[in-house]
Structure formats: C-alpha cells, structure tokens
Computed example of a mutant assay.
Amino acid sequence: MLTGFAASPWVRSALRYGAIILAVLLFLLALRRSGERAGRLAERLQTTEKANDVQRRMLEAAARRPRDRDDLAERLRDGRF
C-alpha cells in the first residue's frame, strides 16, 4: 500500500481529475493557437490575392496602352481612348 502524499484515495482521485483538467486545458490552448495561426494565414492569403489582382489589372491596362504617339493621336480622334 502507498504511504505518504498519494496514499489516500481522495488525493489520488483529485490528482487524476487534476491531470485530466490540465490535459483538456492544454488541448484547448493549442486549439486556440492553431486557430489564430489559421486566421493569420487566411489574412495573408487574402492580402496576396488583392495584390495579385491589382498587379494583373495594371498589366492588362499596360497591354491596352497606345503603342506610340501616332496611335495615341488616332485613338483621341476616334474617341476610343
């Protein structure tokens, strides 16, 4: 039989429940941390998508620009600018 601190059944039961509560608490903290990390990654992805969209629109606009001064003057005369 155990002698000392953990000899009483009440103490062993309290230690067992304390260990279970500690494990659940650590699990919840890890879950919260992984949720925060996922949120940061989603925010980073959204920011990257916005930047890529802006860059794509800039490239499309550059592809439609007049090639030279004559092309610019022709567009202005035709009203297509």
Rank of each mutant, 00 (worst) to 15 (best):
S13H: 07
S13Y: 05
S13C: 08
S13I: 10
S13L: 13
A14L: 15
L15G: 01
Y17D: 12
Y17T: 10
Y17S: 12
G18T: 03
G18W: 02
A19W: 00
A19F: 00
A19G: 06
I20S: 02
I20K: 02
I21Y: 04
I21C: 07
I21F: 06
I21G: 08
I21K: 03
L22S: 06
L22W: 03
L22D: 03
A23H: 07
A23N: 11
A23V: 13
V24G: 03
V24C: 08
L26D: 02
L26C: 09
F27R: 11
F27D: 11
F27K: 13
F27Y: 15
L28F: 14
L28I: 15
L28P: 02
L28C: 15
L28K: 11
L29Y: 04
L29C: 12
L29N: 06
L29Q: 10
A30I: 05
A30F: 01
A30E: 01
L31F: 06
R32G: 10
R32K: 09
R32S: 12
R33W: 13
R33M: 14
R33Y: 13
S34I: 12
S34K: 05
S34C: 07
S34H: 05
G35C: 03
G35D: 01
G35A: 01
R37W: 05
R37A: 14
A38S: 10
G39T: 05
R40Y: 04
R40D: 14
R40I: 01
L41V: 12
L41E: 15
L41W: 04
A42V: 07
A42T: 07
E43A: 11
E43F: 02
E43I: 04
R44L: 06
R44Y: 03
L45K: 02
L45Y: 05
L45S: 06
L45F: 04
L45E: 08
Q46A: 13
Q46R: 06
Q46V: 06
Q46T: 10
Q46L: 08
Q46G: 06
T47W: 00
T47A: 10
T47H: 03
T47M: 01
T48G: 00
E49C: 02
K50L: 11
N52H: 08
Q55M: 07
Q55R: 07
Q55D: 08
Q55S: 10
Q55W: 01
R56A: 09
R56G: 00
R57D: 06
R57Y: 14
R57H: 11
R57T: 05
R57I: 07
M58P: 00
E60P: 02
A62D: 09
A62K: 07
A63S: 13
A63F: 02
A63K: 08
R64M: 14
R65Y: 00
R65M: 07
R65A: 15
R65E: 14
P66M: 00
P66C: 09
R67I: 10
R67G: 04
R67L: 09
D68A: 02
D68S: 03
R69S: 13
R69W: 11
R69I: 10
R69H: 09
D70F: 09
D70R: 13
D71T: 12
D71Q: 08
L72Q: 12
L72E: 14
L72D: 14
L72C: 12
R75D: 09
L76M: 14
L76E: 14
L76W: 06
R77F: 08
R77N: 13
D78G: 11
D78R: 15
D78C: 05
G79K: 02
G79H: 03
G79W: 01
R80M: 11
R80K: 13
